[in-house]
């Protein structure tokens, strides 16, 4: 069926696109788990990539393939309201980002520090970036993003240095 058609394969990312790699990786990790999240991660990567460089031939080639992926996904997702209506898509990504944030925050407050909670903080911060495809973030979302990014880096460093996060 169409839903199981593989996505067009991206060429290796040019050096200029290092900043969008995290979002593309998050997209891949969600292709099966939550395709709506995967779609908007790619859309954010696309918009950001076009701002970085869409003229250099290898950048242009990469973006064309990424656009092919997005168009394929949009067809597969069909009339999913999260794709066809911004207000629904916005709510979907915001809820997902907040769910990840809450999970990591709960683990943090319980003193359970591990790789999975660090990744949840980090992914949550990336998804708040992705949320900007719908417009400016609310102040609350800006605070969550900042806190999640900081916590992920802080706990990661503590664990790396064998220290207990405070």
């Amino acid at each position: 069926s169409m839903a199981s058609d593989p996505l067009p394969v991206l060429p290796p990312a040019p050096q200029q696109f290092k900043p969008i790699q995290h979002y593309l990786r998050t997209a891949q990790e969600h292709d099966k788990r939550d395709p709506v999240v995967a779609y908007f991660c790619r859309l954010y990567a696309m918009q950001t990539g076009m701002k970085i460089d869409s003229k250099t031939p290898e950048c242009h080639k990469f973006l064309v393939k990424l656009m092919d992926q997005l168009e394929t996904m949009k067809k597969q997702l069909g009339d999913n309201e999260s794709i066809t209506q911004d207000v629904v898509g916005n709510a979907h990504i915001e809820n997902y980002a907040y769910k990840m944030f809450l999970y990591a925050d709960t683990e943090d407050r319980a003193g359970r520090f591990h790789k999975n909670m660090i990744k949840s903080f980090y992914t949550s911060s990336l998804l708040y970036d992705v949320l900007t495809v719908f417009g400016e973030l609310t102040e609350e979302n800006v605070q969550h993003r900042k806190y999640a990014k900081w916590k992920a880096a802080y706990i990661h460093n503590c664990l790396k240095n064998g220290e207990t996060p405070q």
Partner: peptide, 27 residues
Amino acid sequence: MGSVGASVASAEQDDLSQRLSRLRDQV
């Protein structure tokens, strides 16, 4: 040659922007 190259690049750029707009139903 240079200006032909530039206009080709700009047409390609327009194409990507248009595809992005269509994707977002903003056409």
